[in-house]
Measured scan of single mutants.
Amino acid sequence: MASQGTKRSYEQMETDGERQNATEIRASVGKMIDGIGRFYIQMCTELKLSDYEGRLIQNSLTIERMVLSAFDERRNKYLEEHPSAGKDPKKTGGPIYKRVDRKWMRELVLYDKEEIRRIWRQANNGDDATAGLTHMMIWHSNLNDTTYQRTRALVRTGMDPRMCSLMQGSTLPRRSGAAGAAVKGVGTMVMELIRMIKRGINDRNFWRGENGRKTRSAYERMCNILKGKFQTAAQRAMMDQVRESRNPGNAEIEDLIFLARSALILRGSVAHKSCLPACVYGPAVASGYDFEKEGYSLVGIDPFKLLQNSQVYSLIRPNENPAHKSQLVWMACNSAAFEDLRVLSFIRGTKVSPRGKLSTRGVQIASNENMDAMESSTLELRSRYWAIRTRSGGNTNQQRASAGQISVQPAFSVQRNLPFDKPTIMAAFTGNTEGRTSDMRAEIIRMMEGAKPEEMSFQGRGVFELSDERAANPIVPSFDMSNEGSYFFGDNAEEYDN
């Protein structure tokens, strides 16, 4: 993207840094990872977990959730003011799984939030270390993106479920800051804005008074975040219109849905970061690795190297396929839920299948599930090659597409044709070009129609051997075009429920 120079890199967003050079960025990201790792080690000690239990991804998720809940100030305040039966607002906890007599047992633990905050700050040299908290939120978000298709949420806001490739980060909490905003897809931002506008339509006082002023500035800020994701002048001009509207209503909703559809071809720039579970960072720190000293990046080879040398386990339900569970977590670790499966298959070195073909449910185990038949197995999170994460949407291309997802959002900077089903997408653009945004709409449609099938995206960008740390010898991959490109292809993934 041309304006790259004016933006802070995501590592800076990730670490609240002012302008830093590459070495400083690597050190501050490393410091953040160190903090998460030290916190995780301490929690495993508190909970008396064995090494194996500490490497269980379900335990990692519970521990991450506990610290996120302990620092969720708004919710904590709300819980104190609106006490609900049987919930102690000062405590947080969740299921911890232990191996007892050759069987997995679930144990519900409860801790004072104050105590968890103390352990977290102690692991982070006394700081609140917001960057580390956001990092864990993005890992949870990436896992949700890989596990669930947001059909219901899309339909509720009037969008087409086939636009799911635009929904990265749709389950990120509001408090995820600049680093969170960077990884949100165009569809996620559109959905947040539509929800806001709908509230304004239904509630006369939404934009009024002292609160209304705050609401208005939040609305304009979200519009600017979305505008910054678009790469064409016409899309940005249309966002200006939406932002400046005196009284946002149905016309703005129409414009936003139009823009979301246009992003299936004229893709937005959305950041991709490899955020790993805390149970990967903990053992690495415990083994003596100093992330701050060595430096770390979320968008280069580092996460690949770390996963190459990590042992992570997962509980497996009786009829689940461990290899499929591994694929789910591998995609989440690489922030690749909406990437082209052919690119992923090449990088991973084994075939990556669409969601609907995987015999696996989510990673988390519900409290009512029976533990008797639970097994555990090693997650295979290694890769054959590594590639640089991208934040450009890439230019655009036609490809055989599917009944489910009709476009992709690249996660890796790797040369390819970008699949999208042009006739299906263009069919949504018939007729409606009147109104105050008509010239911009016409211009956007013209650009979409001009998108050429034979153009290559990320020209000359390749993948790298894991021994090639400096990215000196790019390998331009070859793809098996007979395979499906979309992950949520004609899909039956479970729906995400809060």
Rank of each mutant, 00 (worst) to 15 (best):
N125H: 07
R355A: 09
E252C: 10
E369W: 04
S353E: 02
N142M: 12
A387V: 12
L193M: 15
R261M: 12
Y281L: 09
I116S: 01
L79H: 04
D240A: 13
S50N: 08
N417V: 10
M196Y: 02
H82F: 15
W207L: 09
T45R: 05
V29L: 03
T378V: 06
R416S: 08
Q231N: 05
D290K: 07
E443Q: 14
F488Y: 05
E73P: 00
G394C: 01
R102K: 13
F429D: 01
E107T: 08
T146Q: 08
D480E: 13
R118I: 13
I444Y: 04
A234F: 03
E443D: 13
K351E: 07
G17C: 15
I257M: 14
V299W: 13
A428E: 04
I425N: 11
E254A: 07
N247P: 10
E443V: 13
I265H: 02
D255C: 03
E434K: 12
V270G: 09
F458S: 06
M238H: 12
M239T: 07
N397I: 09
G485F: 15
V476A: 15
E254N: 09
E64R: 11
N21F: 00
R382Y: 09
N76Y: 03
E369C: 06
G185I: 02
R243L: 03
T147P: 04
S262W: 06
G394L: 00
T215M: 06
R342M: 14
M32C: 03
N205V: 12
N224H: 14
V285A: 08
R221T: 03
G349T: 09
D468Y: 00
I316Y: 01
S367C: 04
E380Y: 10
G462N: 10
G126W: 07
L47D: 12
I347W: 02
K184P: 11
R162V: 04
S84T: 14
Y385P: 15
M137V: 09
G94Y: 06
S9F: 11
N319S: 12
G17H: 02
P173R: 06
Q58C: 03
R361D: 03
G462P: 10
C333H: 01
V329A: 05
A178S: 11
C279I: 04
H140P: 04
M191Q: 11
I316G: 03
P453T: 07
Y281G: 03
Q4T: 09
S438E: 00
E369D: 11
L381C: 12
A233S: 00
T147S: 02
S217F: 06
V242C: 14
